[in-house]
Design a protein around this nucleic acid. Sequence first.
DNA 1: ACCTGAACACCGTTCAAGT
DNA 2: ACCTGAACACCGTTCAAGT
Lengths: 223, 223
Amino acid sequence: MTTKIQRTGRRADTLSKERIVEAAIEILDSGGQGALTFRALAARLATGSGAIYWHVADKDELLAAATNDIIARAMTEVVDRDRPQQAIRAMALGVFDAIDAHPWVGAQLSREPLQAAMLQISEGIGSHLQALGVPERAEFDCWSALVNYILGVAGQNAANARLAPREMDRTTFLTTVAARWRQLDPAKYAFVHRLATRLPGHDDREQFLAGIDLILAGIATVR
Amino acid sequence: MTTKIQRTGRRADTLSKERIVEAAIEILDSGGQGALTFRALAARLATGSGAIYWHVADKDELLAAATNDIIARAMTEVVDRDRPQQAIRAMALGVFDAIDAHPWVGAQLSREPLQAAMLQISEGIGSHLQALGVPERAEFDCWSALVNYILGVAGQNAANARLAPREMDRTTFLTTVAARWRQLDPAKYAFVHRLATRLPGHDDREQFLAGIDLILAGIATVR
DNA sequence: ACCTGAACACCGTTCAAGT
DNA sequence: ACCTGAACACCGTTCAAGT
């Protein structure tokens, strides 16, 4: 799966939660969810598997820490915009791109709710709702709609990444999926047949943004 | 959900995929994701663990089949409405309620995309978009926004169910979460602090519907 | 054709023992 | 205080052997 080249020097470095999380992210990025085991992690860090437990409670905490890391990085990189719609779009895109680069984050985000990563996203999105002129009474609903939409896309993207064969490029993959949809009974699945024609040509990122804009348009009506 | 009374006679019944899936659902409902093992399943069916593999390829297929079952049942129960908005709300609520009753389905839906369960939801939601007067060009985006929102909520609900201690009731749990949010730096997490005041009192189902309505309002603007 | 259940490979986690 | 690595309990999956 990954190249087995051992780290060169500094294996005498002290272990730390940061180093462990960093190594975990590398393993997740190159090998996916399944590749992250305490044995693989220990091997990469040139230590015993038990040593990791001195710094990290268990696998759940490790995955949460890795997820928080990626999201925190993504949110920091987002450039501030003047107009609140633009700011919300930018934050949403930041999350989208982070998950695109690290698909395993998508699966993780909808596993642990109310945690640091989710809070950062919530704050990033929510803080601009006031500026949009959303009345207090509707803030909660608008926030929830945006964040849940983002999480839904995140989860689907992660699942897609897990499903699509490595070698196959996107369009070929989507064409295959569309072909399978066309084999469904057209009487029962008329709409899915319509989707099938649009599927191969579509751009995930653009469609993601279109959804954000749709929700923003809805939010504009309660203003 | 289900009563834990052991099936009485007929354990001499032939094994079948239906019986296996049915037993799997019972285990998932009463014990959650973690409780479903091939050993537990074999014990409940009074057979060897290997026997299950004669009818089901692997655990993924089993989980997918169980998920499809629940969603198919939910979609069948939805009463048809005249007005397309009402129909979409009804379908969305059908999915929401099904996941509320079987939280593990929420986690599963965002794991396997483009499968039977997802297709049923897509068709159910999408088929009414035309009736709403959505132009063809926007159909894809509107469908995607609605379905991704539903999946996002599904995932969060599943995660919440996993997190909330059994004994604790909802309000107490949400109050605890809100209290934790209030400990965050108010300068960095001003919006989250605002959320905290609303969290304990809110109704998941109502909020879910509010999100659907928000997206429908957005969809109305592209009509 | 279908079922049984031991065996295999692998995992997260623990812990006595080391430094 | 921190690390080592064998050991434990448990899992999905396989498969020779049965009916």
